[in-house]
Simulated scan of single mutants.
Amino acid sequence: MAPKIVFDKVTRRFDLKDNAFVALDRLSLDIADGEFVTVVGPSGCGKSTALNIAAGLLKPSEGTVLVDGKAVEGPGPERGMIFQQYALFPWLTVRQNVEFGLRIKGEEASRRRQIAERFIDLVGLGDFADALPKTLSGGMKQRCAIARAYAVDPSILLMDEPFGALDALTRVQLQDQLLDTWSRERRTVMFITHDVDEAVYLANRVIVMAARPGRLKEIIDVGLPYPRTEEIRLSAEFMSIRNRVWQAVYHQ
């Protein structure tokens, strides 16, 4: 089976005042259909740059990103993007935010509502469908953003530190929520994080990046079963993989 996402020798340079800064250097990586991949590495290693190129928000200076065998030329509906900041429309309710992409796609009102309610329930916001974002906690806003991304039926989710601004307890709860949603919907996920524990807990594979210039350092398989549980998080197997990732990230 062909990979879902292919980074083929992708380089990205940014022109600074006196010279060019190489943010990403000849990154080659395949991500399988339905795979959950996390990407970790020190600041400046090109994690978000790679994600933004896959999203079509940046163009590579050299190389190509392929999705389903086709070169990425810009944003597309098959790729849902979720940012660290919630990016909800503050004047729209939870339901209206989740319906927004469906409205752009031209779905009729009854169909929009049916789809929105499904994903609002899936992320546990059924009691808050008519609430405005200002009345929601940070974790609830991020769940709304995840529901909105899922509603337009992307085959790929690109997530840039989506839980980075949350407190530790909410973060763990949303990790479990995300894995539960992923296990039911089985989209391909590329998830950027600075948190080594989070990277191991979520992923099939952890991609470790090296900095300046940003490049692939190591790929670490996570042979832990799903569903992931608190028992797994406390297991010796988890700690062994976590320590390997930690060494790869912080001893460069």
Rank of each mutant, 00 (worst) to 15 (best):
A2F: 06
A2Q: 04
P3T: 06
D8F: 06
K9W: 04
V10H: 09
T11D: 03
R12E: 05
R12Y: 12
R13M: 07
R13Q: 12
F14R: 11
F14K: 11
L16R: 15
K17P: 11
V22M: 10
V22D: 15
D25K: 03
L27N: 01
S28H: 05
S28V: 00
I31S: 07
A32V: 01
D33V: 01
E35T: 03
V39K: 06
G41W: 10
P42I: 02
P42Y: 14
S43F: 07
K47N: 02
K47W: 04
L51C: 00
N52C: 04
I53T: 02
I53Y: 06
G56T: 01
L57I: 04
L58M: 02
L58P: 00
P60G: 06
S61E: 02
E62K: 06
G63S: 01
D68G: 08
D68A: 02
A71K: 09
E73T: 11
G74K: 00
G74S: 07
E78N: 07
R79A: 03
G80I: 01
M81R: 02
M81Y: 15
Q84P: 07
Q85K: 14
Y86L: 01
F89A: 11
F89K: 05
Q96Y: 11
Q96P: 09
Q96A: 15
G101M: 00
L102S: 13
I104V: 15
E107A: 14
E107T: 12
A109Y: 12
Q114D: 12
I115F: 11
I115W: 07
E117N: 13
R118F: 10
R118W: 10
F119V: 14
D121T: 11
A129G: 08
A129Y: 13
L132T: 13
K134L: 04
T135F: 08
S137L: 00
G139F: 03
K141I: 05
Q142C: 01
C144F: 05
I146N: 08
A147L: 01
R148Y: 12
Y150L: 12
V152H: 05
S155K: 09
S155W: 01
I156W: 02
I156D: 06
L157W: 03
L157P: 01
L158M: 00
A165S: 12
L166R: 06
L166Y: 09
A168I: 02
A168P: 09
Q173N: 15
L174P: 07
Q175T: 02
Q177M: 11
Q177L: 13
D180W: 12
T181C: 14
S183M: 12
S183E: 07
R184Y: 13
R184K: 13
E185N: 04
E185M: 11
E185H: 10
R186S: 10
R187F: 08
R187G: 05
T188V: 04
V189H: 06
M190E: 05
I192E: 08
V196I: 15
D197T: 10
E198K: 08
V200R: 06
A203P: 03
A203V: 00
N204A: 05
V206S: 08
A211L: 03
R212F: 13
G214W: 07
G214A: 08
R215W: 11
R215N: 13
L216H: 04
K217A: 14
E218V: 04
I219G: 09
I219E: 13
I220N: 07
I220V: 14
D221P: 04
V222W: 10
L224E: 03
L224I: 10
P227H: 13
I232L: 13
N243W: 13
W246N: 15
Q247G: 15
A248M: 01
Y250T: 15
H251P: 08
H251E: 15
